[in-house]
Design a protein around this nucleic acid. Sequence first.
DNA 1: CTGTCTATCTATAAATC
DNA 2: TGATTTATAGATAGACA
Lengths: 238, 238
Amino acid sequence: MARKKVDLTYIANDSKRKATLRKRKNGLIKKVDEISILCGIEACAIIYVPENPTPEVWPSDWGVQNVLSRFRGVSELEQSKKMLSQESFLRHRIIKAQEQLKKLKAENRKKEMTLNIYQYFNASGNIFDSANMIYLNDIAHMTTQNLQEIDRKINRDQQPQDQEVVAPVVPEGGEIMAQQGEQAQLVNDHVQVPEANNVNAVGNQDWPVEMINGADGDQMLTMDDVNLPSGWLNQYIP
Amino acid sequence: MARKKVDLTYIANDSKRKATLRKRKNGLIKKVDEISILCGIEACAIIYVPENPTPEVWPSDWGVQNVLSRFRGVSELEQSKKMLSQESFLRHRIIKAQEQLKKLKAENRKKEMTLNIYQYFNASGNIFDSANMIYLNDIAHMTTQNLQEIDRKINRDQQPQDQEVVAPVVPEGGEIMAQQGEQAQLVNDHVQVPEANNVNAVGNQDWPVEMINGADGDQMLTMDDVNLPSGWLNQYIP
DNA sequence: CTGTCTATCTATAAATC
DNA sequence: TGATTTATAGATAGACA
């Protein structure tokens, strides 16, 4: 946007394109930061440069990252390379999730659904496993909350005590803030994580069984069903 | 950025803030579109306006969405409301995933890890379930690929046939492109999805058992372990 | 390749409709 | 409240170091 008016087409020249990317990337980050600050909203941008295995992400808050920092701070220099693919997939996962989210949003949101993710995980005894553990737990947490949300709406005014279990216990410095007027959320993730393991300290709240098993015909996927190395996108489960 | 220089602070005035948000949101979308077109990269922005339950997402490609469109095209007007929380959680999940991804990237990626997500899911027989099914399958797919990647690197030159299972079968119009020089990826997601269900068509490649069970002390999480309604972030699994 | 400079284009704050 | 206009702050293409 200077000497010449930009024509909105792919920049064939390799170095020019790269330079443009660098400049505009910075500009985009700034814009995202500005809009989130000025308007007090959550905003983020993701830029994936194929040549670079590191996806460029600018979330508006860094809570979980700080938590992970704490874990990682112990051992900094360890084996490498393997994590790279992990990141690559995480990145791809983010893009995919966004696409799906957009899709779900753009059209009518009309159907109720219930889902649950069951996981197990090979802890090889290093510090990074705990980070991954958090990731997986996070997914489980999301689906748990989702189930609770659905259950709560269905049984509104019937079992109000289920509403509060989603509020995370914040050991230190955390803030609980009401979000959208009905969902308690952990806003400040800058929590101190005790080094001791407290896996067994997790709560076992009652799952809405009718949500898990379904009221009209169960559909349960086995590992064989979901462990799909190819053509995984072409599935249709009625 | 006009009459007055912008001071980067929260705009207290309600209508002004809203107006600014509207303008800058459009500007941000445009910027994201431009950078992705000009530089040929994947980029997206997410803007979450608390007052609005719909998270604003602009992915650069719409492949999966098209796939989902195909599914959704059947029934457009159905029950509502429930999906909303689903979206809310998806949005939150995206943010969290981004944070974690950034964290993993920003520092050293040094440890190998293996993970697996096992899921089951209550299909209530409506069209939207298939969309969610895809979402879950997608997660499973990611972890599956990750396991394969790790296994492949460990057994490099030993079991080369495992490398190819990650290349998705593209029914039509898809492109397989080498990414980062070693990972085959589905680039063009605008695939035609057959309407027939092919759940049972998924492959059952061999899982690296040593990855799943671990070589140095297994750590298996049960549903009770991961179903953590509170304090889920404070777990440390050695 | 990364940083700086500058002319110019673009985004947008403020005013107005 | 949302669209349009206007003047100016901000972003950046091209050139250069």
